[in-house]
Simulated assay, not measured.
Amino acid sequence: MRKKLRYSIAAIAVFAAAVYLNNTNLLASHREGKPVLLAHRGIAQRFDERDLTNDTCTAARMLPPKHDYLENTILSMRAGFDLGADIVEVDVHPTTDGEFAIFHDWMLDCRTNGHGVTREHSMVEMKALDIGYGYTADGGKTFPFRGAGIGQMPTLAEVLQTFPDRRLLINVKSRDPLEGEKLAAVLNALPGEHRELIMVYGGDEPIQTIRRLAPDIKTASRASLKACLLAYIGYGWTGILPQACKNTMMLVPVNIAPWLWGWPDRFLNRMEAGNSVVFALGPYRGGDFSTGIDTPELLAKLPADYSRGIWTNDIEATGKLREN
């Protein structure tokens, strides 16, 4: 009996040592350099983020503006890159005349002087809209951007042409697989070196379609993020990277990261070996992954020498923090 107990204790000790050695960062290589910054919506007007729902009109909750840029415009994207963004995120909607409009909202009514579902309009119609029409920081007393946003809604084609050598993250706002087909056709028409700069995330159905039709494009959806995280937490201690974690974009909240086997360097090296990229987010508290690394306090939750991806909603502030 005692002999069996000793064998069991020895086996447990050997197993624990193997898990430790396979996941300790003491034996992991570390990539030097500065973090890779992903600017959510380029440089945008900030808004009160408390108690948001899918129906919240964020333009009506704008904080006092610190700059004149409107999100998802060529000007805001260029400013985002100039302020230190390595990647800029844009939102797309298909239009009735075969284009993709760069615009965040499902409906036009909040931000613009238009009405109705965004994807039910032509690009010709939306080019005539004022995308700064609905912004107010004082409950509707003043609208500082009215008139400034006329004609500023770009097409995806214009963005790709303007930034052929810059990295972009495209957000598909729908769950329509046909939108995935249309976007895959646009991306597959690009030169290979341009496609390497593009990532796509969004609804499960269009992302599954893009993964099938444009398999070289890195993608992410709620389903793929969940599948990767659960599989990695389940058996990532072995050093084996789950298939769900390969050729993908992974979003990791800072309060979840320490629970990942081998965080930071072992985990990040494994993801990189699987042709995947990782971006750290702010804390996950349920709902959508929209909180960015936007303050010194959140940046401090990452390793001091962290050199992989960071998702930020405030590229102006985070770009300065990276340089310090």
Rank of each mutant, 00 (worst) to 15 (best):
Q45C: 05
M153H: 02
E158R: 10
M249R: 12
A185S: 12
S8E: 04
T73V: 08
L26D: 03
P65K: 03
W263T: 05
R167P: 01
L183G: 00
D138P: 05
L108S: 01
Y232T: 12
G114F: 00
I233R: 15
I87F: 05
G274K: 03
L298F: 06
V252F: 06
G116R: 05
C57S: 06
N54Y: 13
Q152P: 01
G239Q: 07
G192T: 13
M77A: 14
E32V: 08
T291C: 04
G192K: 14
K320T: 09
R61K: 13
M77T: 12
P264I: 03
F47L: 00
T295I: 04
N313W: 03
A16I: 13
G234H: 00
N171W: 07
D294W: 07
D130G: 02
T96Q: 14
A28P: 10
R175M: 11
P154A: 13
N188T: 11
M107Y: 12
R41A: 12
N113K: 05
T318W: 03
M1R: 10
S224Y: 11
G147P: 01
A223Q: 14
R50V: 10
L21D: 06
Q208H: 09
L241E: 09
N23C: 12
M107D: 11
K34R: 12
S122W: 06
Y20L: 14
S29R: 14
L213K: 13
A17Q: 04
G192S: 13
N247A: 09
A17R: 02
D165G: 04
K173D: 01
S8A: 15
R146W: 09
H121N: 01
A39G: 07
L299P: 01
E196M: 08
D305V: 04
T219W: 07
A227D: 14
M250A: 11
D109P: 00
E193R: 13
T56L: 07
L52F: 12
V254I: 15
L5H: 02
V88K: 04
A59H: 13
P296K: 05
G234M: 00
E99L: 13
R270Q: 10
M199G: 07
A28V: 08
R322H: 04
R50M: 08
T118K: 03
H30T: 13
D176T: 11
Q161E: 15
E193C: 03
R308T: 11
T248C: 10
V159H: 06
L70P: 08
R111V: 06
Y201N: 14
G192F: 04
V200T: 08
L260F: 06
R61Y: 02
T58V: 15
D288H: 11
D265N: 14
Y235Q: 02
L52Y: 10
A184Q: 01
